[in-house]
């Protein structure tokens, strides 16, 4: 049994051993209790969680805000009028059926879509209040602040050390001692240090799939981004490695904002604090729209939208 629970049990017994009355809870609430009876107990949507979703400004910070964002590949509109706020130090999951534009939206957050020719956007994406699509914005700077982890582990064909040091070196860091420190810290944050500390100069490609993915996470962490985008980070991994990545995400939450795209609804339910559900608006034009965005507990127990409910209950189609 858990230590914490043991002590509580002890406490629980002590408090009950003396028969003094009144007791643990204060029953002196006669008047207000009458009012309480009329108060509707909202079932399944804890009031506390709804409050945290529309927080007062001093409580929660928005790390990024997507404002009325649309994206076109040539004539094809891939995303339409998407607006959502991404909470700082939380995990936000984007779910939805294939081809609904989840990855496109994710890649818009660090301008990876710029690599695609004929792309055009409308609307804004604010990172800490600054529009990353404003003219004159340095893409390199955006990508440094917003790191990315991909579906398949993609370590560079270099040593583990050089993989991690790649980013810092890009930004002009040359001092060996400092690089050593960054490599160790990043690997520790990615929960990989103990497994690789004796073979830092072996190739990163010699690691197992799960280790490679954590190496890629460590590589992204090495440039100290503010936000990390994960595009189905566990879809190529076995269940144990997947679990490790999920636990890792939880431990990274305190320092980073994480946005994850996943096909795996259960994974979104397990790891995320907020969930966004996207869908194509109709089968003809296949434009992705945001259907529902809310606290994960709500989206998976009491979604507000019929389409979301159909999707999370597996009755989609």
């Amino acid at each position: 049994m858990d230590m914490f629970l043991d002590t509580f049990l002890l406490d629980f017994q002590n408090r009950n051993s003396h028969h003094n009355f009144p007791s643990l809870i204060d029953y002196s609430v006669t008047e207000t209790a009458e009012e309480d009876k009329t108060k509707k107990v909202s079932f399944l949507v804890p009031a506390s969680q709804i409050d945290s979703f529309t927080p007062s400004p001093q409580d929660t910070k928005y790390k990024a805000s997507i404002l009325n964002f649309s994206l076109f590949y040539g004539k094809f509109q891939a995303l339409r009028n998407i607006s959502m706020d991404i909470m700082a130090n939380k995990i936000t999951a984007i779910i939805g059926p294939s081809g609904c534009g989840k990855s496109t939206l994710l890649r818009s957050l660090n301008r990876m879509n710029d690599l695609v020719p004929n792309i055009r956007i409308q609307g804004q994406i604010l990172l800490e209040g600054e529009n990353i699509y404003a003219p004159g914005v340095d893409i390199v700077g955006v990508r440094r602040r917003v790191g990315m982890v991909f579906q398949r582990p993609n370590p560079f064909p270099k040593s583990i050390y050089d993989n991690i040091a790649y980013g810092p070196r890009l930004y002009g860091m040359r001092r060996r001692a400092l690089l050593d420190e960054i490599v160790e810290r990043s690997l520790q944050q990615a929960a990989l240090w103990d497994e690789v500390k004796d073979k830092l100069h072996h190739s990163g490609m010699a690691l197992s799939g799960g280790q490679q993915q954590r190496l890629c996470i460590a590589r992204a962490l090495a440039v100290q981004p503010e936000m990390i985008l994960m595009d189905e980070p566990a879809s190529a991994l076995d269940p144990v490695a997947t679990l490790k990545i999920e636990e890792l995400m939880q431990s990274l939450k305190s320092e980073y904002t994480i946005v994850i795209v996943t096909h795996n609804m259960q994974q979104a339910a397990r790891v995320s604090d907020y969930t966004a559900f996207m869908m194509i608006d109709n089968p003809q034009n296949r434009t992705g729209v945001l259907v529902e965005y809310g606290p994960t507990a709500q989206v998976f127990t009491n979604p507000q939208n019929k389409q979301t409910e159909d999707y999370v209950t597996g009755r989609f189609g």
Partner: peptide
């Protein structure tokens, strides 16, 4: 007071039930 306090018990029960379902 105890009679009125039953409301607290009921709310706690709903809270636990919700958390359990979540």
């Amino acid at each position: 007071r105890i009679y009125a306090g039953d409301q607290i018990i009921n709310e706690k029960r709903y809270e636990i039930e919700q958390n359990c379902l979540i």
